[in-house]
Amino acid sequence: MSFEQSIRQLLVRKEYQCNGETRKLARGIQFYWMPVAEQELVCQLQQLFKVFSITTRFFSWLYSFTSHS
């Protein structure tokens, strides 16, 4: 299935699967089609992964901190 078809289904169903669980799609969410150059896409993905990595480490630290209390 193409990415565009997946997004269309997501908007119709208003739910998605995450870690085997069905989750509701937030109200008012919108998707936009925006052409980007290959290098720009690579840069955006690198930033996204960097933020994800920092967030994941923070929540791992927070979990370890709270589980020992």
Results as ranks from 00 to 15, higher is better:
L25D: 02
Q46A: 15
V51H: 13
E40T: 09
K24S: 04
S2V: 04
E40Q: 11
M34G: 03
Q30S: 12
A37D: 12
I7F: 07
L48V: 09
Y16G: 01
E15Y: 04
Q9A: 09
E21Q: 11
L48G: 06
Q44P: 00
W33C: 09
L45P: 01
K24E: 05
R23W: 02
L45A: 04
K24G: 02
Q5H: 07
M1E: 07
F31E: 01
Q30C: 09
Q17R: 09
L10R: 02
F31K: 03
K14D: 02
F31G: 00
M1Q: 06
Q47N: 10
K50S: 15
V36P: 04
E21H: 07
G20N: 08
Q17I: 06
M1F: 05
N19G: 00
L25S: 00
M34E: 13
E4F: 10
A26T: 02
M34N: 11
V12K: 12
V36M: 14
R27S: 07
Q44I: 05
A37C: 07
Q46G: 07
V12P: 00
V51I: 14
I7A: 07
W33P: 04
R13D: 14
F3S: 08
Q5P: 00
K24R: 09
I29G: 01
Q17C: 02
E15S: 11
R23A: 01
Q30T: 13
V12C: 03
L45R: 12
G20M: 05
E38K: 14
L41C: 09
L41W: 15
V36D: 10
I29C: 07
A37Q: 15
R13P: 00
E4L: 12
R23E: 00
F49M: 12
L10C: 01
C43I: 09
F3Y: 10
I7H: 06
F49Q: 12
V36H: 14
R23K: 12
G20C: 04
E4C: 08
P35Y: 07
L48K: 12
F3H: 08
L48W: 10
E15C: 08
C43S: 15
K14T: 03
K50E: 15
C18H: 08
L10P: 01
V12R: 11
E21V: 05
G28P: 03
E4D: 14
V36W: 11
V51T: 13
R23G: 01
Q30Y: 08
R23Y: 00
F3R: 10
I7N: 06
E15A: 06
C43H: 15
Q17M: 08
K50N: 14
V42M: 03
Q30F: 07
A26F: 02
R8Q: 14
G28L: 04
F49L: 14
S6K: 11
Y32R: 13
E4A: 14
E4T: 11
Q46R: 15
W33L: 13
R27F: 00
Q9W: 08
L45M: 13
